[in-house]
């Protein structure tokens, strides 16, 4: 009986594919690799690797403890490498993120509100970052988070640096 090995990527070990252009421009495909992006990023920088109108996929290098953030909409954190603790706190004053704000905003210090709980997430684990709650990430060792969200003031766009251009 055949034994199959499922291949995942990591910061330590990834192999990038690519676009083989026949009659096109490679830039149309905005091709990047999230582990390569995270390997070049500072901890918790929000680097866009996908954009579809106002929506983005952000890659975060999880390392150490992040600041607290919150959004006016749900977001979703998928751990792609490493182990990340996600701490949630109910916002005592949800207006710290005005309704209609796109993407998450950075909060000063620890926001007022009750602790909701925490999630210890490893590769493949997806966590809901619910509207009305603030969140903080912590990772003892470098990891990678893929965030489903809306482009916000802190989203970093570095297409020319991260994407295949030829």
């Amino acid at each position: 009986m055949t034994t199959y090995t499922t291949r995942f990527g990591s910061l330590q070990r990834y192999e990038k594919g690519g676009v083989e252009v026949i009659n096109d421009d490679a830039k149309n495909y905005t091709f990047s690799n999230m582990f390569e992006v995270a390997s070049m990023a500072k901890p918790y920088e929000k680097v866009a690797v996908g954009k579809n109108m106002e929506y983005v996929l952000e890659v975060l290098r999880a390392e150490g403890t992040s600041g607290w953030r919150a959004a006016a909409h749900d977001e979703f954190a998928l751990v792609m490498d490493g182990e990340v603790e996600i701490r949630l706190r109910k916002l005592a004053d949800p207006a710290v993120v005005p309704a209609g704000t796109r993407g998450s905003v950075s909060l000063n210090g620890t926001p007022d509100g009750q602790p909701m709980g925490r999630v210890r997430a490893r590769r493949g684990h997806m966590t809901l970052l619910p509207v009305g709650a603030a969140y903080q990430f912590h990772a003892d060792r470098p990891g990678v988070i893929l965030l489903q969200t809306v482009a916000g003031a802190d989203t970093q766009f570095r297409w020319a640096e991260i994407c295949q251009t030829m």
Partner: peptide
């Protein structure tokens, strides 16, 4: 996919927030 880990994330919800802290193993 028999080698894909089946562990679920560890979720600790504070009293009063049960069911509001959600995570799952997508893989």
């Amino acid at each position: 996919f028999v080698d894909v880990p089946q562990d679920e994330p560890e979720i600790v919800a504070e009293p009063g927030f049960e069911g509001q802290v959600s995570a799952f193993n997508l893989f």
